[in-house]
Nucleic acid binder design. Structure first.
Length: 213
DNA sequence: CCACGGATTGGCT
DNA sequence: GCCAATCCGTGGA
């Protein structure tokens, strides 16, 4: 992505997020996920996501209703829901639908675009990386949060503001979007709510990559 | 109050 | 392929 493209790109509005979670999930693929702070910009193209929430989804944090941790997920489309897991990782989600719905899309992998040096410092404590490390930079929900320094302090911020936001850049053909079952869950494991960009090398868990639809 | 286990990762077999 | 690391949210007692 060059500077001109970046300048032309625009943020999705609130209406984009306040829709059906599966629809939003598919359309998030190909968008640029941006984190901006005083040190500059880090960004990546979204290449893998998973949808969560609703009465049929036992794997969702929202399944048993509102709690202190998950309340952001019930607060309406356009917010960032960040949670801490396994004692050492954060995962970030994009809340969708209207207030009270409790649905969100987990961002599972990014293809690095800008700020690779800083992301590398955050992940590997060094500012130069080889091709293999580049593929490993943000190819997982925990990895991308570490790369972009996303912690639960950012839980609940609005994607319509200028700290973390999305930029539209391209329209993916439907044939490039693969749907399959979600990674790392035991409950509601059969729902085909994981979406990723076909043949993209920055997607996590290659072995799961078989369409089950 | 306490025990359980997780929307993960990386290292070892 | 298997498992430990490491914390805290959650649910049941």
């Amino acid at each position: 992505m060059n500077k001109a493209d970046f300048f032309e790109a625009k943020k999705p509005g609130e209406d984009f997020y306040r829709r059906d979670v599966l629809k939003v999930a598919g359309e998030l693929l190909g968008k640029i996920f941006v984190k901006k702070d005083v040190s500059g910009i880090m960004s990546g193209r979204i290449v893998e996501v998973e949808a969560y929430g609703g009465p049929a989804d036992e794997a969702s944090h929202t399944f048993r209703g509102i709690t202190q941790r998950n309340k952001t997920m019930f607060s309406g489309g356009g917010l960032l829901y960040v949670y801490f897991t396994y004692g050492m990782y954060h995962c970030c989600n994009i809340v969708t639908g209207s207030e009270g719905e409790g649905r969100a899309v987990l961002i599972r992998a990014l293809e690095p675009v800008e700020g690779v040096e800083r992301m590398s410092l955050n992940r590997f404590r060094k500012d130069f990386i080889n091709d293999r490390e580049l593929l490993n930079l943000a190819s997982g929900p925990g990895k991308l949060c570490q790369a972009l320094s996303i912690t639960k302090e950012l839980n609940g911020i609005s994607l319509l503001e200028d700290t973390i936001f999305l930029l539209e850049r391209e329209k993916l053909p439907d044939s490039d979007i693969i749907s399959c079952t979600r990674v790392g869950i035991t409950k509601s494991a059969g729902l085909p709510w994981r979406f990723y960009i076909k043949d993209n090398p920055f997607v996590s868990h290659k072995k799961y990559n078989r369409s089950k639809i």
